[in-house]
Structure formats: structure tokens, C-alpha cells
Write a protein that binds this DNA or RNA. Structure first.
Length: 279
DNA sequence: CTTGTACCCTGACCGC
DNA sequence: TGCGGTCAGGGTACAA
């Protein structure tokens, strides 16, 4: 799935076009995209007739505020690996290459918001504002927030024995970092991904914190990384791929020391790193 | 509480 | 051209 920079890019794109639009009807192509027990009938009835507010994001979750007053809800979307959005007048724009319709939201102005998800690992549900806040409390800090400091990161890591890479991927510790940017940040910070998180010194945590933020900001500026499935709204793609130092570069020379980039499996996913530069 | 593993699902790609 | 194996920006349920 898209990580924080990709999800934020999608949020900003949608935010140009969605707030103020009223939902005229919902077509659910795959009921397994509805989470938390929502059925197409109940979901469609709950959403139809409400108007979207400005979109929000927390970690990798997108929130579409809907309705007013006591009827306020937040439509929560998890894109996971292959979720995408497009907006079109009658069908998804051809450049978006949507071949796996998931849920279509017909808007009262004649446009349609399309959610497409090849693997259907993503999903959508409807929360009360209080439930959205509860979810938010269960997530770690936003890494780009001012309140997220190197010291704070060190405090989070201190009691943990799990490998630092696994901790960066754990959304309860820090929200929004995924497999690409975890590898990239650890490489830039010169930290071995297998090190127990609690072993990092304050200085190392500060260095990692700095690189996490730098990398996420850089990726955000580039509108994300496009590898396989991710695309921003209507197919507009990200350019950060060219800036990746180690991710996906197994066997290539390390950009710093020229030694071959290694790969290992952590928490069921690939970690790319330089065994010489990362200690 | 923490940590690791299996699993959800489809498609792209590689070697034979 | 076909086939099997592997891998994929994620998160959750469950076991230890």
C-alpha cells in the first residue's frame, strides 16, 4: 500500500474535488471491501444523501467526513496494498487503468468517485467521530508533526526489544511509515535494521528521527513513490522512486560504499540494507 | 504486555 | 505457451 506520503498525496488530490459533493448512490462490487460488518445495503443507505467535508488523514488511514450534526460520520478508507481512487464523469478515466472496480460513489453533480482494489486487501467502513478519535489514539504519533521529536522517538523505542525495522512498521509506535521508507530511513541513518529498538542511543534515535522526517517530506514533495500499484488520484504518479537508495536494489552496489546491498526478511517483509554502512 | 507467524487476494515476473 | 514458485508501499487475528 501507499505509505504516509502516498496517502497524503491522495488526500490532497481528493480534497481539491470532493468536499461539498453529495453522495447520490453507492454501488458495491465486492462486499468484502466493506469492513466492520457493514453490508452494501446498510452502507449505501447510511452514506447516500450526505455531503463530504474536507478529508483527513491519520497514519495511512484516510477519513472522509460526511454529514452534519448528530448524523456526522467518518468514512474510513484503508488502501492497504492496492487501493486506488479516481474521479470521472461516467467511467474511470482511462489513464487510471481501473480494471477492478470495488466501490463506486455516484455524486449528485454527475461525477463518480471510484475505489478500485485489485487484491481487495483494503477496505472501507463508517465510523462515528468518536470512533475515529479512538482509532487515532491507538496509533503512534504522526512523524511529520512538530510534537514528534528525536527525544520522543527515543522514549518510544527505549522499552522495546523488537528489531528497529519491525518497530518502525508498527503503526502503534509511529504512524504512517511502511516498508519502503523504513528501509530508506535506516540506511540513511546508518542503523542496522536488526538492532533491538531499545538499544538505540539518544543520538541514534535523533539521527533516525531526522531521516524519517527528511525522507517522508522528500517523498511527499515528489508525490510519493511509484513502484507497482500505487498511483495518486486518476493515475498521476509519484517520482520518488528514483531517489530510493536501497529499497528494491538487492545486489546493486551501495551508493555510499559500493558493497553489495543485502536483503533479509523481517516481520514477513523484505528489508534492504547495506551490511557495511549500517551498524 | 510483547513478539512472531499465518493469512487475506490477485497479478507480474522469472526460470524451466 | 504453460507451469510452478516467489514476491508485492499492509494490517489483523491468534498463539506463545
Amino acid at each position: 500500500m501507499p505509505e504516509l506520503p502516498e496517502v497524503e498525496t491522495i488526500r490532497r488530490d481528493l480534497n481539491q474535488q470532493i468536499p461539498g459533493a453529495e453522495v447520490a448512490g453507492v454501488l458495491v462490487h465486492h462486499r468484502d471491501l466493506l469492513l466492520s460488518g457493514w453490508t452494501p445495503g446498510r452502507f449505501g443507505a447510511a452514506v447516500t444523501g450526505s455531503v463530504f467535508g474536507p478529508l483527513v488523514r491519520r497514519g495511512k488511514f484516510l477519513g472522509f467526513p460526511l454529514g452534519k450534526g448528530d448524523a456526522r460520520r467518518v468514512m474510513r478508507v484503508q488502501l492497504r496494498m492496492t487501493g486506488r481512487f479516481a474521479i470521472g464523469a461516467d467511467s474511470p478515466p482511462p489513464e487510471a487503468g481501473f480494471r477492478h472496480p470495488g466501490i463506486d460513489f455516484a455524486l449528485a453533480d454527475g461525477r463518480t468517485l471510484y475505489y478500485d482494489d485489485v487484491r481487495r486487501l483494503g477496505g472501507i467502513d463508517l465510523l462515528l467521530p468518536s470512533e475515529w478519535r479512538q482509532m487515532s489514539r491507538n496509533l503512534g504519533p504522526e512523524p511529520l508533526a512538530r510534537s514528534f521529536t528525536g527525544k520522543r522517538l527515543h522514549t518510544i523505542l527505549a522499552p522495546l526489544k523488537a528489531p528497529i525495522k519491525n518497530v518502525l512498521l508498527d503503526q502503534r509506535r509511529v504512524a504512517g511509515i511502511g516498508n519502503i521508507y523504513a528501509s530508506e530511513a535506516l540506511f540513511r541513518a546508518g542503523i542496522d535494521p536488526r538492532r533491538p529498538a531499545g538499544e538505540l542511543t539518544l543520538d541514534e534515535a535523533r539521527g533516525l528521527h531526522r531521516w524519517v522526517r527528511r525522507i517522508l517530506r522528500g517523498a511527499l514533495e515528489a508525490r510519493g513513490t511509484r513502484l507497482r500499484d500505487y498511483q495518486a488520484v486518476n493515475g498521476r504518479s509519484g517520482r520518488y522512486r528514483d531517489k530510493l537508495r536501497v529499497y528494491g536494489r538487492y545486489g546493486e552496489p551501495c551508493p555510499r560504499c559500493r558493497r553489495s546491498i543485502d536483503r533479509l526478511n523481517q516481520a514477513g517483509r523484505s528489508t534492504f540494507f547495506c551490511p557495511a554502512c549500517q551498524r
